[in-house]
Design a protein around this nucleic acid. Structure first.
Lengths: 198, 198
DNA sequence: AGCGTGTTCTAATCCATATTAGAAGAACGA
DNA sequence: TCGTTCTTCTAATATGGATTAGAACACGCT
């Protein structure tokens, strides 16, 4: 294995380990030693790749945000061009749940720690968050414009309620108790009914 | 002010300060110095009332859980005896949002830190959580039994989606952008539609 | 006033953990 | 094989923050 490639893999291993620990222990509780143990290196190895613990953790968070955004956007792009606005919302629900429940501890780390980031990092995190919110805002606006969604509720609140339900899923979903597909289907079902007129 | 009373007030002040800091900084990031500053005492004063930082924080969490449970149960008890199952769910939604958004930083601290508690504390936290979950399970079961709720979805998943939406509300709701009453109404509206047959 | 008890403070202590210094190891090219 | 460079390690260092010790303070009682 060429040098450059091995080095890159170590970096990825540390980053992934950091995501795992961060998602479980919280920002302040994430120790370099724990990350190092998971990544099978010694703690100071981290400093070869990042200037500080904080930079490493910040990268985990932004990576998590990007992973979510990109997966959702990609899933939407993969839908047939004639998908209805509600179908697109279904697609976004599925993609969000997939990334948060299966694909990425990064997303989970970003979600769970959003409220406890240091101020400077919190700020640039808010930028990414706004970007992602815009995607959902667009989805909902399209649905309203298409008349596929009830106009009788505060769309911002409705949107955030849905995102909350999705972001909370990792706290209770357990692969042993039910398949991801089932959760996705149930969520789509409930949300679709919740947002459409009777 | 009698001695006993003053002492009790200091204790409450420290506990409340701990809740505030804990809800913002996370379990590991909550420093005694910060708690002390908010409570307007010096850090070692904490040890007069609690044997350790961990005991203090644990009390915050259990207090938060109890506050939520009690407020919801009390609100349900205050409903007219002939309230429908769906009305009772509406009541629980309102009560949960009230406690989480307005009444108690304790609840918020408990919610936000659930995933990062040390193992021993996590365990007794799970007990309280199960107790609260039972209340909601009861509400949903009653609604299903009364035929007021669609039988075509996984009730556990539906229940957790709703609770997720509620627990996430503190992350986005801001009293300046809309009244609590509005959020409650929207939530009730969306959830009711989401759970009832078209 | 003076004593005793309950409460809070100031000044250590002590440990955990981020970070730095510099050596060892491993890959690559000559 | 040897030297160079990139990567990782071991062994300090340094700091922050929980905890402890014991002094000061405050209240209530006689």
């Amino acid at each position: 294995m060429p040098r450059e490639r091995k080095s890159a893999r170590t970096r990825e291993r540390i980053l992934a380990a950091a995501a795992q620990v961060l998602s479980r222990k919280g920002w302040a509780g994430t120790r370099l030693v724990d990350i190092a143990e998971v990544a099978a290196v010694q703690a100071p190895a981290v400093y070869y790749y990042w200037p500080s613990r904080e930079d490493l953790l910040a990268e985990v968070v932004t990576t998590g945000q990007q992973a979510t955004l990109e997966h959702v956007v990609a899933s939407l792009a993969a839908l047939p061009a004639d998908a209805s606005a509600l179908d697109r919302i279904d697609g976004a629900i599925a993609a969000h749940l997939e990334v948060v429940l299966r694909r990425s501890e990064f997303s989970l780390a970003a979600i769970r720690n959003a409220a406890q980031l240091p101020d400077d990092i919190r700020e640039c995190q808010l930028v990414g968050q706004r970007e992602y919110a815009d995607v959902w805002r667009g989805l909902v606006e399209d649905a309203v414009a298409a008349g596929e969604l009830t106009a009788d509720v505060d769309t911002r609140a409705a949107r955030m309620l849905v995102l909350g339900a999705l972001n909370w899923a990792p706290e209770w979903w357990n692969p042993d108790r039910g398949s991801l597909e089932d959760v996705v289907a149930t969520t789509q079902h409930v949300v679709r009914r919740g947002l459409t007129p009777h």
